[in-house]
């Protein structure tokens, strides 16, 4: 595949993503109007409703303009990096997000890494030993992991490994890389447990299906070694595994809400909980938009991954 067709492919996917984000931004903007009470009241928050403050709010948010104009001026601000001001703290929302984003990204990345490192090898092992004791163990463990909610796992981990055994800190983010990793390990594990279960199921099922395909039998029959044959099958199971991985990352972004609260971590999740509690609508809007962007980015990556894994996707052949 040439660089040019890659470029065209990426542009097409990017344009698609942009359309999705633009549509969702309308919904995010609408959050302001969905919040209970009048918009002015919502934006005023706990401040006294004097004529001056009301006038200031109306001017700042163009509340007297028609809705489309309000949306466009909000969107214009968002594009310039102006996400509004937090009602709760009075700080610019962009700054608040900037402080908290790295932690959540680190936590999600760490959790995904753990899930992939554990889930795919376990799934492969299960597929290769299909029907035997090791496989049944893997499948059972996967079901247990899948059905355990992250906050419950988090509490259990805290009780056992932090409070009981004292191997890990109970809360906080730590200083320096090693210490931070240590602090993030339990939350990342709590996030990863369910994801491991899902990855085990997807990768095991995908690999079992591929191992039964004709091309695998043919490869064996013409004398290819076991590693080469497994390589054939694994490469072909990549598309479902990538799909699962994409779902896992987006699921983890949502899961951080509960896990960050459980482990008292100052990330986006705990910010979201606080902001919802205080009806801090500009922050909630900004968080919703940010999560939308992150999820869209993950899906874009998965799409790119598909086409890297499967030439039929990028060259446009019929799968057969």
């Amino acid at each position: 595949m040439t660089g040019r067709s890659w470029g065209v492919f990426l542009l097409r996917r990017l344009a698609g993503t942009a359309v999705v984000v633009a549509l969702l931004s309308i919904g995010v903007f609408g959050l302001l109007y969905l919040a209970p009470g009048s918009v002015q009241q919502t934006l005023l928050g706990t401040r006294p409703a004097t004529p001056e403050t009301i006038a200031a709010i109306q001017a700042r948010y163009h509340l007297n303009d028609p809705l489309p104009v309000q949306y466009l001026s909000w969107l214009g601000g968002v594009l310039r990096g102006d996400l509004g001001t937090s009602i709760r703290t009075g700080m610019p929302v962009a700054d608040m997000l900037g402080q908290r984003l790295p932690l959540t990204l680190a936590l999600t990345g760490y959790g995904t890494l753990l899930a992939v490192l554990a889930g795919i090898p376990l799934g492969v092992a299960g597929a290769l030993r299909r029907g035997r004791a090791a496989d049944r163990l893997v499948v059972t463990a996967g079901v247990v992991g899948l059905s355990a909610p992250p906050f419950a796992v988090g509490l259990l981990l805290l009780v056992v490994f932090a409070a009981g055994l004292g191997w890990f800190p109970v809360y906080g983010v730590g200083e320096g890389f090693a210490d931070q990793v240590l602090h993030l390990t339990l939350p990342a594990v709590a996030l990863a447990v369910g994801a491991v279960g899902m990855l085990v199921r997807f990768s095991r099922a995908a690999l079992i299906r591929e191992l039964d395909q004709d091309y695998v039998v043919f490869a064996r029959a013409r004398g290819l070694g076991a590693p080469a044959v497994l390589g054939y099958a694994l490469r072909n199971s990549l598309v479902p595994i990538l799909t699962a991985a994409g779902l896992i990352v987006t699921g983890m972004l949502a899961g951080t809400v509960l896990v960050e609260v459980t482990f008292a971590l100052p990330g986006l999740g705990s910010l979201l909980v606080d902001s919802v509690t205080f009806k801090d609508v500009p922050v909630v809007q900004a968080l919703a938009l940010l999560l939308t962007l992150l999820i869209a980015a993950v899906n874009l990556l998965v799409d790119v991954g598909y086409s890297a894994a499967d030439p039929r996707v990028r060259i446009g052949g019929r799968p057969s």
Binding site: Q213, D214, Y215, V217, F218, A219, A221, R222, G223, Y232, R235, N236, A309, D310, P311, R312, P319, S320
Partner: peptide, 14 residues
């Protein structure tokens, strides 16, 4: 060596 039935499935598609 073995040559199999279905030319549409006997080669690794990727």
């Amino acid at each position: 060596s073995l040559l199999m039935q279905d030319p549409f499935t006997l080669l690794n598609p990727l």
